[in-house]
Write a protein that binds this DNA or RNA. Structure first.
Lengths: 197, 197
DNA sequence: GATTTTTTTGAACGAATGTTCAAGTAGCGT
DNA sequence: ACGCTACTTGAACATTCGTTCAAAAAAATC
């Protein structure tokens, strides 16, 4: 089986995402990748370049999947804010324990690496920024739909949410206390819809 | 120079903390440790056991230093809440960029490692829990001093703060936007002292 | 069906990993 | 002064690391 047919790129990327997400960039060896992807080193290097390149591809894949979920499940919804809260609830609390890590993969990578991996780090920064911008989009839509006060600073709200999500998911990994996080999500949306004056 | 005299344990631990904090547990090699500590492998292993043992010692050292700072600078203060806010401000924003990482070392380790390093992970969980308990102590003191409403749930407040700090410091590493974090600290203490009813 | 083109294979590379240990060395008690 | 003890040293160990590449294999082209 060679030439053209080869492997299913989407499937392979998904498997690589799972492994990197669980083990981290440094913590994942290329041999573990080889067995997880069921590919030999030559093929992996021909297809993706290096370990760092594959990881970058995986990060893009991860962020794009998140963005698509936001578009299909939230932006195309008559009540974007409610759909957003629901999605966040599911994404953060993750009823089925099917995820490789409680942490957001971007936040996990941000925490793991120092400036000696500046290329990956700046990609993570870019992607986190992109996600934050989509959060702002959602809030803008919610404002248009009349579910957020007209005076809401959507950019500030997006920043706050980004900070909160990273905190929630870290706290979840630390304590596994879903109740606290559930309350915090509700509280944040409460404050957004009914701010202090 | 042998027998008894040996090395300065506090100094060596501090240097190990710096390196581990910057590079992470997996990302720090024992050779890097050897040159950072100016010790040969045999000495390190005789003094601390293994890389994992040294890292555990470092984590305890880190958490204890934090607790001591909390005791001396906050608990022994006539206005514990104000001193606490000041300490948090300095600790999170870190005017001199002298720290190995913007992240909290406990949060960084929590993010880095998966369950295959269960011993270290459970130590991190314990230490985060201890720190959170000290936060609650501070809030209790602030309540006694009349700087927090009598009805304040100090445990819940400590959890919220723990979540926030992790979020803030991660966000700081991602964006370097000190302004946003400064505002968020102020806002959180605002909400603590003047909650909604 | 022979040739070309592209991919896969898996052994192999040098470097780096965490760790060990025999040998060396310096301060202690006597 | 001299062994005794305790610590340090640095070479060496067996693995594992990320990566390469010649050879094999399989589709595509003619």
């Amino acid at each position: 089986m060679a030439n053209v047919s080869k492997f299913d790129r989407a499937d392979v990327l998904e498997k690589a995402t799972q492994l990197f997400w669980e083990r981290g960039y440094i913590g994942t060896s290329t041999r573990e990748l080889q067995s997880a992807l069921d590919m030999r080193p030559g093929s992996i290097y021909a297809a993706f370049g290096s370990k760092a390149d594959l990881f970058a591809t995986v990060l893009n894949h991860y962020a794009q999947a998140l963005t698509e979920q936001l578009n299909t499940q939230v932006m195309n919804n008559a009540n974007a804010l409610q759909a957003f809260q629901q999605l966040l609830h599911d994404l953060v609390l993750c009823p089925n324990n099917t995820r490789p890590s409680e942490m957001c993969m971007l936040a996990k990578t941000l925490a793991e690496l120092d400036e000696s991996h500046s290329e990956i780090l700046s990609l993570v920064r870019t992607l986190l920024n992109q996600v934050e911008a989509r959060f702002a989009d959602v809030f803008t839509k919610a404002k248009e739909q009349g579910n957020l006060p007209a005076g809401t600073d959507v950019v500030a709200a997006a920043k706050t949410l980004q900070i909160s999500i990273i905190g929630w998911r870290s706290y979840l990994k630390a304590t596994r206390d879903t109740q606290v996080v559930e309350q915090q999500i509700e509280q944040l949306f409460q404050q957004l819809t009914h701010p202090i004056h």
